[in-house]
Nucleic acid binder design. Sequence first.
DNA 1: ACTATATGTAGGATTTTTCCTACGCATCAA
DNA 2: TTGATGCGTAGGAAAAATCCTACATATAGT
Lengths: 127, 127
Amino acid sequence: MTADHVFAALASPARRRLLRLLLDEGAQPAGRLAVRFDMSRPSVSEHLKVLKDAGLVAESRRGRERHYRLEAGPLMEIREWLTPYERFWRERLSALSTLLDEMDDLGPDDEHGPDGLNGRNGEQPHV
Amino acid sequence: MTADHVFAALASPARRRLLRLLLDEGAQPAGRLAVRFDMSRPSVSEHLKVLKDAGLVAESRRGRERHYRLEAGPLMEIREWLTPYERFWRERLSALSTLLDEMDDLGPDDEHGPDGLNGRNGEQPHV
DNA sequence: ACTATATGTAGGATTTTTCCTACGCATCAA
DNA sequence: TTGATGCGTAGGAAAAATCCTACATATAGT
């Protein structure tokens, strides 16, 4: 439920694969998910529990089956957590292109066109 | 260097805090980062190593200090990994608002205005 | 050359994670 | 009711992560 739980849950490749399966194929009973893994069914069941505790999946009981569905909310919180780093990333990119421009001014050694995707006009942070 | 390494690196609160410090305050020598933690300096040093192996920080030696700087590229790959889930998330949202509209049609019990941020007009996936 | 500083590495204790098999519980079908 | 099916939990072994205290290395200053 906390960000800690979400990050910890995403640390396992098996759990990330579970999320992807639920995304691509929709909600499914636990057993149908488990057969895809090179791992015992109870182990998959525990992974599902970790995902559930992190709020990444929800379960609904239907007869003797338990259907798990993706709950993408926490992933959007991860996305928000990443946002400030995106700003940093863009600034690095524009700093790089500024540097390339300066190199062009000093002495163009070849004629590779400027293929940057941004306008080469940002502030330049810690380089 | 792989996505596995990046997700695993982000699983530790201490390492996420290191990244945040480097983002907010810029590159710093290892020792200056370490004093902020309720943990021995060598332990912080190992966390920095994990981050470096994941490509999340880079080090540059300056005299007897080692400055660590944020390397945001891998975080942008995480962002891309999240993208398909964002689509799923939006579809859920619009499905919810569609549902709310139907409830309005059947019998409006109060007059809360529709405060959804989207137009309530998407496809409705697995609800 | 000698000492102090900045930092990584070694080795180990402790905790956590991961995975298994065995079992219990609920549901469906005869 | 009886037997099969779907699934979680218990208990434990093995592996990995976490954190510590020495210790080694390299640079700076005197």
